[in-house]
Amino acid sequence: MSAVAPAAAMPAPLPAAERSSGLPLVVLLLLPIALVNAFGFLAPVFNLLRMSFYESQATGAMVEVYTFATWASVLRDSFYAELILNSILVSLGITLMTLVCSYPIALYLHRSSGTWRTILLVLVISPLLTSAVVRTYGWVAILSENGLVNNALGAIGIAPLKLMFNKTGVVIGLTEILMPYMILALLAGFGRLDPRVEEAASTLGAPPWKVFRHIVVPLTMPGIALGSLLCFVLAVSSFITPKLLGGGRVFLLATEIYDQAIVTLNWPLAATLSILVLVIFGGALVLYTRALRAIM
């Protein structure tokens, strides 16, 4: 979900011979990707929309009749209302935590330079390239009953905490999992942070925390907004970590979609919930553009 790469800035001149046979060649070159896109993306997504209007039956079979039954039940049932609200609140909490944890790292990276910065940057990116399963497993090792935290607490005589199979575990795990995205987004937005502006504020008599509050934070707002959007969206749709650290006891939209699709085989319901996720995405995007306009 990072920014789309910039298109070529210059018109690309071509030998005349190539230009004259341009159209068929273009079609030929784009055909394979168009096929993958059509069969692997457009058709499935379109089908998903349609599926949410199908009728599901107790046997798991579906009837190809168009009905608002699934939508009606989702919108009426308080279980789903709670599920949606829960997902949004948990994701917001995770986003906030991620921001708070990532900001010092990003600021530190922004102010360091040379080889040291490269090393730290690799350390930030490496988790991104490591499977979510591996990292979630690491959190199991830290948070479980026999894990690092509880054994440490036990050693100093404190009763074990319940850190897993509940929202606490999910929030801690996902915060860490999403931190690299936030750090990179923040770094991208820190470009406007000119050390001289901060120095100017200091010479004008602002103590460090006021420089931070009145200069650094406002200037880095675009990065904060982008990182938050990214993390919120990823949190709402993440599935592996809530599933493993929630142990089936934390109900979120993403885990419910999977259960309905794979366990219950109620595809119309899964489709409907998926579309709700997309609606939440749309809402987040609208809020983001509003926020960005207010900041800029």
Partner: peptide, 13 residues
Amino acid sequence: LPTIVLGLAILIV
């Protein structure tokens, strides 16, 4: 598209 949504969409098709 979130992979959970994409996964479901692809599963169905």
